[in-house]
């Protein structure tokens, strides 16, 4: 399969009054088309910074990022990014929320609008297009946010702790929902999370970052022998616990 994302030698130094801090040191990895990859690491290891750098929201100190072989600088059209909160605009109805990205990019045409409407229909939101975000449940709001991101047809989707603002039950349901959408639409995804079980339940591979300065400590292939894999049915398997124990040890939360 073809490489979608290549991350080469990324490092990040912060300049502060107290001096320099090396947050990320020499990170390298690739993501293939259609893959779901997660990054986990102890808190403060720079995993969210790494994602912001890939998204072009933050500058890097060294290194290069390629998408489909093309070197990118700054915010790229090819990247979709979802934050912790859904960030829906309360004064816009659902339809106008989902086309927000297209509008910003001045990209609204018949085809793109039809694509959004198809997604809304497919994922049970079409009846709500004239409603406002405050009238929707947390899970529905997150789906709207996802459709807003997918509307611009990104080559790769970045999820930055995208579910951590939800309560536990909603979160499990939403991850299931979102996972299904991403698989159906064949979206390549890179997710940052602090939740090991979320990473295992959704990913094909998990990258473990070391504590600061963050470097890649290890990469784990996650394989479940299930025909219709979903985040929920993975959780029932014995492999799940095995992966969990391995990753838990590797995070080295106990070490000082």
């Amino acid at each position: 399969m073809k490489q979608i994302l290549e991350v080469k030698n990324i490092s990040k130094k912060y300049q502060g009054k107290e001096g320099e801090v090396l947050a990320i040191n020499n990170v390298n990895f690739n993501i293939k088309e259609g893959e779901f990859v997660s990054i986990i690491g102890p808190s403060g290891c720079g995993k969210s910074t790494l994602l912001s750098i890939i998204a072009g929201l933050e500058d890097k100190t060294t290194g290069d990022i390629y998408i489909e072989g093309e070197k990118i600088n700054g915010i790229s059209e090819k990247i979709g990014y979802m934050l912790q909160r859904d960030c829906l605009l309360e004064w816009r109805n659902i339809l106008n929320n989902t086309i927000f990205g297209l509008e910003i990019k001045n990209n609204i045409d018949k085809a793109s609008k039809q694509y959004v409407i198809d997604l809304l229909k497919k994922y049970d939101l079409y009846d709500f297009i004239n409603k406002y975000p405050s009238e929707l449940s947390g899970g529905m709001r997150q789906r709207v946010a996802l459709i807003r991101t997918l509307a611009t047809r990104p080559k790769i989707l970045l999820l930055d702790e995208a579910f951590s603002a939800l309560d536990y039950q909603t979160r499990i349901m939403v991850t299931n929902d979102i996972y299904e959408i991403l698989r159906k639409e064949k979206i390549t995804t890179l997710m940052v999370t602090h939740d090991i079980s979320e990473a295992i339940s959704m990913s094909d591979r998990v990258l473990v970052l070391s504590k600061r300065p963050g470097t890649i400590k290890n990469i784990h292939e996650i394989n479940f022998d299930i025909d219709n894999r979903t985040p929920i049915n993975c959780r029932e398997r014995t492999e799940f616990t095995n992966y969990f124990n391995i990753l838990w040890k590797e995070l080295g939360v106990d070490e000082k």
């Binding site: 915010i75 934050l83 960030c87 605009l89 927000f100 990205g101 910003i104 990019k105």
Partner: peptide, 11 residues
């Protein structure tokens, strides 16, 4: 966060 969301679309 909302402003950041808009920035991800290159606003």
């Amino acid at each position: 966060e909302v402003i950041k969301m808009a920035k991800t679309f290159k606003a």
